[in-house]
Amino acid sequence: MANARPGLLRRIVRHRADYLYVAPALLVMLLVIAYPIYDTIYLSFFNTPPNLALEDKIFIGLGNYQRILGMDSFHEATWNTFVWTVFSTLFAFVLGFGAALALNREFVGRGLMRGILLIPYVISAVAASYIWRWLYHSDFGVIGAISVAIGLTENPINFLDSTDFVMASLIVVNVWKEFPFAMIMMLAGLQTVPDQLLRAAQVDGAGPWHRFWHITVPHLKGVTLVTVLLLLVANLNSFTIPWIMTGGGPAGASEIWITHIYQLAFGRIRFGLASAYSVILFIVMMGMGYFYVRALTKGDAK
């Protein structure tokens, strides 16, 4: 904005009444969004005392960043975060898209079906976590009981207490919770595929697979991009399910960035360290944010 167009000031003055509409929102956003971002970056350069007497903080430059990047638990959490985010997104998208395709035709009870499939998405993540903890329960869990009953395993699997199974178990819960989101996004996208094109292709002799691949799929590029990005972001940011179900355990096997940050900040009261951690996460997010805004505004502003 250095070389502002001539008359920018005049335009601002002419539109001064417009700003009144956004002013309250702007004020709130500054207070609860802009200031916190600034404060996080600021704190990330300090060693903060564990009693939260922030006036005693010590400036240590990039020291917090060096410490984090050198922590074994950070490397482990990074790998876990990667697995968690990628697989949650992948499965949620595949299930959601499949459901959207199956729902994208008229049949009796379609609205009801859509409603039922959306319920996991709307219920509280806390409730969902407890429901699944109960389903996974090592002694009385229904999933373990079923797998024994149909002869899959001899004894109930210890889903949440085993370092081998815990991540997969959590991802199942997460996919259960968010595939409906992918479903309605893709369903909405499917409904914008012009019928005429599909019919024209049908008249031209294209089978269902060709119609899908050559007309539907290209048309869904934009929605897919937005949906996948939103899923990635949501998964990278998810806290409740891992926190309530395992708290990052056992032995850090389900620790992801977010739970790790929370643990550092409010378990061990290391605000400086946790802030630096947040900034790292933040940088990853900004990269995705760039693509998100680009995908959303493509075609909006000429």
Binding site: V32, I33, Y35, P36, I37, Y38, D39, T40, L43, L236, N237, F239, I258, I261, Y262, A265, F266, F271, A274, S275, S278, L281, F282, M285
Partner: peptide
């Protein structure tokens, strides 16, 4: 993420 805002 909410956590970024949590501390400040």
């Amino acid at each position: 993420p909410a956590v970024v805002f949590l501390m400040p």
